[in-house]
Amino acid sequence: MTPDLLLPYAGTEPVFATPPLWCGRGSTVIGRASLGAEAWLGDDTVIRGDGHDIIAGDRLRLGPRATLHIAQDKYPCILGDHVTVGRNAVVHACTIGDDCVIEADCVVLDGSVVEDGVLIEAGSIVYPRSTLAAGFAYAGSPAEPTRRLAPGELAARAARLLGESPAAPAPLLEAGEARDATVFVARTARLRGPVDLAPGVSVFFACDLAAEAGPIAIGPNVNVQDNSVLRTEGSGLVIERDTTLGHNVRVADGQIGPRSLIGIGAVLAPGTVVGEDVLVAAGAWTEPGQVLESGWLWGGRPARRLGPLDAGKREMMRRIVQQYAGYGRTYRKAQAALLPPAG
């Protein structure tokens, strides 16, 4: 089998040691990605090797909406043999050893090293540049060792993750839908209802934007990264200009101010209002109706102020917007060349 969408990046095509055993609907593999034998890719999985390498060993197993990505020109994403990644988990710019299980809704962040035979339990966040020692279960945010693993536990957990029934994916975006020439919408993204995309917006692979209960309005130069889910429940959602939504972010009704960054795996509850120049840390959750004041780093569950944004963080946020604008231009051209809209 082959993924739903295969794209080159900077002239490099993905490489598979053997054809995957399974590729779900919306599965996407891009660029500098090399997968070992007998990979299994669930619905809406994204493996995006742009700007660095993604190298996975044999028998990689990705649950629905799992995302593998890199840090451009800084960190690759390396996974050993027999790695299982659960639903809606993100493995980002880090190294994972052999025989590891990363459960649903986990985030493993840049520069981390997960040694062989590790279990990361559901909902855990592995902070940047952490080292997780072999033979332990880890849980929490930040992920901490909780106990030694019992014999056979990893295999049982992996089997359970693979046995979870995926939800039926929604219809894909209709081919040929008219949009501004500067807008990028991935062919494995789904948009439903009144979704307004301003010039320069990028909606990346396997995102799901459902505006059936209220409108979604996205301002200029916003990037919505892989596997993010935006679903309104009534009043609608407004995202203002030059803002980033990281991988696997979940957002309901509310407002996000300009020049903000919502970190990987964050969840914004209905009615959340994010001010301008706000950084929401990876894996943070807000409470319904919470207001995140401008100019601060927010993190935790529920989110709380961690400190004012300094010049370095503001520059990082600005750089990500520029970087993703470049990604959008590149993928718009590659997608048009590979998959022209049906006539």
Rank of each mutant, 00 (worst) to 15 (best):
Y127H: 13
T84A: 09
T84L: 01
A175L: 13
C94T: 05
A143Y: 08
P171G: 03
A122F: 06
S165V: 15
D81A: 08
N88F: 12
P145G: 10
A139T: 09
A104K: 08
A170W: 02
D110A: 15
Y75H: 15
A167D: 10
G163C: 05
V118L: 05
L173R: 15
D98P: 10
V126T: 01
R157C: 11
A175C: 06
E103R: 05
D105L: 07
A155M: 01
E144A: 14
P169T: 10
A137K: 03
A150W: 03
T95P: 00
V85N: 05
L149A: 11
C100N: 10
G123C: 09
L162K: 02
R148C: 08
P166S: 06
Y138D: 02
T131L: 06
S124R: 01
L109Q: 11
P142N: 11
H82K: 02
P151K: 04
G163D: 15
G111C: 04
E164N: 06
A158N: 11
A170E: 12
L132W: 05
S130R: 05
Y127N: 01
A150R: 14
V91Q: 10
A139E: 14
D81H: 12
V114C: 03
V90L: 05
I120A: 06
L149G: 04
P76V: 12
R157L: 04
A175Y: 07
A167G: 11
A134G: 14
Y75D: 09
V101H: 01
E103C: 02
V90S: 11
G111N: 11
C106E: 08
I125K: 03
E121R: 15
C100D: 10
E121L: 13
D98I: 06
A156F: 00
N88R: 10
G135S: 02
S165D: 11
C106T: 08
V113H: 15
Y75L: 07
Y127Q: 01
G97P: 06
G123I: 14
A104R: 13
E121M: 13
V83N: 13
V126S: 07
V83M: 09
D99H: 12
L119A: 15
A93P: 07
S124E: 06
D116A: 12
C77G: 00
V85A: 00
A143D: 08
L132K: 05
L79V: 04
H69S: 13
T84W: 03
I120N: 01
D73C: 10
D99E: 14
R87P: 00
S165L: 13
E174W: 04
L161R: 10
A71E: 12
V90P: 00
I70E: 00
A175I: 02
A104D: 14
A143M: 04
E103N: 03
V85I: 15
A139L: 07
D116H: 11
A150C: 02
C77Y: 10
G86N: 06
G86S: 01
A150G: 01
G152F: 01
F136C: 07
S141D: 08
L173Q: 05
V83Y: 05
A93G: 01
P128G: 00
L161S: 02
V83C: 05
I120F: 07
V101D: 01
